[in-house]
Structure formats: C-alpha cells, structure tokens
Amino acid sequence: HAATELTPEQAAALKPYDRIVITGRFNAIGDAVSAVSRRADEEGAASFYVVDTSEFGNSGNWRVVADVYKA
C-alpha cells in the first residue's frame, strides 16, 4: 500500500519520525508527490507531508522535502 499524503492540519497533529529529500525532474507537482509517496513507502512510512518544493536553477530539476510519519 502506498503512503498517503496528509493535509496541513493532519501533519500538524502528528510528529514526523524522519524527513526525506528527493531531487529529480518532475513535469508537475503531482509527479513529485508520487515520487515522495514511493520513497516514503519504501521507508515503511504510513503517510507523508510535503514541507517544501524548490526548483534548482532553470534546469527543470526539483528538490522536494517531506516529513514522513509511521501511523
């Protein structure tokens, strides 16, 4: 099962156990969220919340930071 994305309210009520950072070329924010979901799932997380997204220069590469939560 894939890790689910939390709302800001849900994330605020929970304590993350880790923070992950992924970088890559994403065509849309949805693609980045899917990549975070896969990584969170690999780490055994039940859910995640994207904290920050930023573009690296003009290369089209993105850096996505997310907190991950157990259950």
Rank of each mutant, 00 (worst) to 15 (best):
H1N: 09
H1P: 09
A2S: 13
A2I: 11
A3N: 02
T4Q: 12
T4N: 09
E5M: 13
E5W: 08
L6E: 01
L6M: 06
L6G: 04
L6V: 02
L6H: 02
T7V: 07
T7P: 04
P8N: 08
P8Q: 13
P8K: 15
E9D: 11
Q10I: 06
Q10F: 05
A11E: 01
A11M: 04
A11D: 03
A11P: 02
A11N: 02
A12R: 12
L14C: 12
L14W: 07
L14M: 13
K15Q: 12
K15Y: 08
P16C: 07
P16N: 03
Y17D: 03
D18C: 15
R19P: 00
R19S: 04
R19A: 03
R19K: 03
R19Y: 05
I20T: 00
I20N: 01
I20Q: 01
I22S: 00
I22G: 00
T23G: 02
G24V: 07
G24P: 00
R25H: 12
R25W: 13
R25F: 13
R25N: 10
R25S: 10
N27Q: 11
N27C: 10
A28C: 13
A28W: 10
I29S: 06
I29V: 11
G30T: 13
G30N: 10
G30R: 12
D31C: 07
A32M: 14
A32C: 10
V33E: 04
S34G: 09
A35D: 03
V36H: 01
V36N: 01
V36P: 04
R38L: 10
R38C: 08
R38V: 09
R38I: 12
R39D: 01
R39I: 11
A40M: 04
A40V: 06
D41S: 15
D41F: 15
D41I: 15
D41K: 15
D41Q: 15
E42S: 09
E42F: 10
E42M: 11
E42P: 01
E43I: 15
G44I: 04
G44W: 05
G44M: 05
A45H: 06
S47W: 15
S47Q: 08
F48L: 01
Y49S: 04
V50K: 01
V50D: 00
V50F: 03
D52L: 13
T53E: 05
T53M: 15
T53D: 02
S54H: 14
S54C: 15
S54E: 14
E55V: 12
E55R: 10
E55I: 13
E55Q: 13
E55F: 14
F56A: 08
F56H: 08
G57H: 06
G57P: 08
N58R: 09
N58E: 14
N58W: 08
N58F: 10
S59K: 10
S59A: 11
G60S: 05
G60K: 06
G60D: 06
G60H: 06
N61I: 15
N61L: 15
N61P: 04
W62Q: 03
V64A: 01
V65C: 06
V65Y: 05
A66P: 00
D67I: 09
D67Y: 14
D67E: 08
D67G: 01
D67R: 03
V68W: 04
V68S: 00
V68L: 15
Y69A: 02
Y69L: 01
Y69D: 00
Y69P: 01
K70Y: 12
K70V: 08
